[in-house]
Design a protein around this nucleic acid. Structure first.
Length: 153
DNA sequence: CGTTTGACTACGC
DNA sequence: CGCGTAGCCAAAC
């Protein structure tokens, strides 16, 4: 900006995406940013990476009125931790809500993205809204019973 | 109007 | 794997 003269549209898009995150799962600022297409006239190829901070702004904006329709508590950083100051009220609330959804924290207050991470919204919904499919946070279940490396030739 | 700050990340030690 | 640093950009001071 990409000046984001009116941040509302970007924020709204973020919120709509966050609404798609199901109960008991978490997404990351980066994952959301990557789903939002680069605006016209913007050449930045790493627009998505930069967007992570704006997603944070959008979350901050919604957590103030605490809009119940936007599950902002399901948005964490790429390290798998809550990004609010650890001793803040908001962090405590977010943590409580996640635990309420059976999301587990390890000893270091970290969430296993491979277990609770979001793999993206329905492809139909994504395309219908002109967005970019999200990069899955959970790895494909390669439980050793999916020998993909075996060639047919 | 220059500085600082931040719900971010990537990278180097 | 943990901690510090460097980019980045808009907003708040």
């Amino acid at each position: 900006m990409v000046t984001l003269p009116d941040p509302a549209p970007y924020f709204r898009t973020v919120w709509e995406i966050v609404k798609q995150v199901p109960y008991g799962q978490v997404t990351t600022f980066k994952q959301i940013a990557e789903m939002i297409p680069t605006p016209k006239g913007v050449e930045r190829d790493d627009y998505a990476k930069l967007g992570a901070r704006w997603v944070g702004d959008a979350m901050n904006a919604v957590s103030i009125p605490d809009e119940p329709s936007v599950p902002w508590h399901r948005v964490i950083n790429s390290k798998g931790t809550i990004s609010l100051p650890p001793d803040s009220k908001g962090a405590a609330l977010q943590r409580a809500r996640l635990r309420e959804e059976q999301v587990e924290f390890d000893a270091k207050e970290r969430i296993d993205l491979n277990q609770f991470g979001w793999n993206g919204a329905d492809l139909e919904w994504v395309t219908a809204n002109g967005l970019i499919p999200a990069k899955p946070l959970r790895k494909p279940a390669d439980d050793a019973d999916t020998p993909q490396q075996m060639s047919l030739f």
